[in-house]
């Protein structure tokens, strides 16, 4: 992670607002490749800004104890970052330029020692696959153990403080071949049950219905070119989103694998029965 992103306080009336501004001006004059972030652009969830934030080594500079800059970084990125609070220097000097230089020193010191920590999310390949399976007519229904399932047929996998979301084997079998996927942007926030993009198959166009409330932190962009991954590997390479959940206790509203299997078998049988009766 070589890019450097610095998010200064945006309130120039704040005790450390002006110092933040001076500090970032100095940082950019020393290293023109560093990105000066915008709290406004993050608040507006501008995709380019969120992409810069998420792909950089981030330092936030807070101009007062409200810590808007740090809060904004926390909201839009799941990675570790360095927070510098200008007001921590209040006692050491009254001179704003001196304070700014102290801030710059801290930021530079951080960047000099920062390690290239990998993102917290776990690649699907590294996860142990373990499935419940049931034979329904000539179909094999697979439900992955250890995940949580919504009645709209999406799964949620806990990955430390994040979750990965995808559609179930049952759903991909019911809708048939997916040929188009439209994913929502990183930074998008949804409530439980809200729409999270959509997809089209040879049978149906449907919404992705979010199985929990949270903010999208990563999308599976491979699906844009290879929507067939949803059918081929719905619990693995066909994942949809990594999200930062608002409230992890919402998982209680979902079904564990065994309950979802019972539910899925019933649903699949009804679906088959309907076809036979037609």
């Amino acid at each position: 992670m070589s890019k450097k992103y610095i998010l200064p306080c945006a309130g120039f009336d704040r005790p450390g607002g002006k110092v933040s501004k001076i500090a970032v001006d100095i940082i950019q004059s020393l290293d023109s490749s560093s990105i000066i972030g915008s709290i406004g652009a993050l608040a507006a969830e501008r995709p380019g800004e969120i992409k810069d934030l998420r792909s950089s080594d981030v330092v936030s500079i807070d101009g007062c104890s409200v810590k808007c800059a740090s809060k904004m970084v926390e909201k839009h990125s799941a990675r570790e970052f360095e927070a510098v609070e200008v007001t921590a220097f209040v006692d050491s000097t009254d001179n704003e330029d001196e304070k700014a230089r102290a801030v710059v020193d801290m930021v530079q010191q951080h960047w000099a020692t920062a390690t290239t920590a990998p993102p917290k999310t776990i690649e699907p390949e590294s996860l142990e696959y373990d499935f419940l399976t049931e034979m329904i007519d000539k179909f094999i229904l697979r439900v992955k153990k250890g995940l949580f399932y919504s009645d709209n047929d999406f799964w949620v996998q806990q990955e430390e403080d994040l979750v990965r979301v995808g559609l179930t084997d049952l759903l991909q079998q019911m809708i048939s071949d997916v040929f188009f996927v439209e994913l929502t942007d990183v930074g998008h926030h949804v409530e439980f049950g809200d729409e999270l993009g959509s997809f089209e198959s040879t049978k149906i166009a449907m919404e992705i219905i979010s199985p929990l409330s949270g903010t999208v932190v990563e999308t599976n962009t491979n699906l844009e070119d290879s929507p067939e991954l949803l059918n081929e590997d719905p619990y693995g390479a066909g994942w949809l989103y990594v999200m930062h959940p608002d409230d992890i206790s919402e998982l209680d509203l979902l079904k564990p694998a065994d309950e979802y299997m019972t539910y899925g078998v019933e649903k699949a049988k009804r679906e088959l029965g309907k076809k036979v009766s037609k």
Partner: peptide
């Protein structure tokens, strides 16, 4: 009607379809 699905609403050229508030239903 599939709970939380609002796909038909998007198809309607006259914007004549409405659904309850999701958080109320939840």
């Amino acid at each position: 009607c599939v709970v939380f699905c609002r796909a038909c609403q998007k198809m309607c050229p006259k914007d004549a379809l409405s659904f309850p508030n999701k958080s109320d239903i939840l």
